[in-house]
């Protein structure tokens, strides 16, 4: 095995390894859809964000227009403060846009869904989304449902 042939093979090997890494980065990971930096920040407050994480998607009309940048807790108001980065291209969101936390699929991850209002003015860097609806917590839902069921039964009992 001449030195030259060895070196060629090593070069091929390293290139293959780099190509594999590249392929993983591009085709497998979220690199292509991952653009940090280009966006403006808005905040929204929630009573309950359970399950929402940093980098969770922020959508409007089903299209992802941004990501959750950070989640903080306000000690005075005892609320969750969610900071979202909206892509700069989407700068026509009305000032009275509302934000709700949804679940993707039945057991999927949480995301923030934005619904437009009717205001002429648009959201800018640093604005606060005023109307918010909390994440639907499964346990609370079931609790509400069971309570409703019991109420119905009681009513039926009562009117018999």
């Amino acid at each position: 095995m001449t030195t030259r042939l060895t070196e060629i093979w090593v070069g091929v090997f390293v290139a293959a390894g780099m190509a594999a890494l590249f392929m993983l980065a591009m085709k497998v990971s979220n690199l292509s859809t991952y653009n940090e930096g280009d966006g403006y920040l808005v905040t929204a407050r929630f009573e309950d964000i359970s399950g929402l994480k940093e980098r969770s998607p922020v959508t409007m009309a089903g299209v992802r227009i941004g990501r959750v940048k950070s989640i903080d807790f306000d000690n005075d108001a005892l609320q969750a403060v969610v900071t979202m980065r909206i892509d700069t291209r989407h700068n026509t969101l009305p000032k009275d846009t509302s934000a709700s936390i949804y679940t993707a699929g039945l057991l999927g991850e949480k995301y923030v869904g934005l619904e437009p209002g009717g205001d002429d003015k648009s959201l800018k860097q640093g604005d606060v989304v005023k109307l918010t609806q909390d994440s639907l917590v499964l346990e609370k839902l079931i609790g509400q449902f069971v309570t409703k069921l019991l109420e119905n039964d009681n009513d039926k009992e009562g009117t018999k």
Binding site: F13, V14, A16, G17, M18, A19, A20, L21, M23, L24, K27, V28
Partner: peptide
Amino acid sequence: FISMPLLAAIFSAVGV
């Protein structure tokens, strides 16, 4: 040290 991460990347890529 140089070879291991390259091999692991190749393994994962081919695996996918």
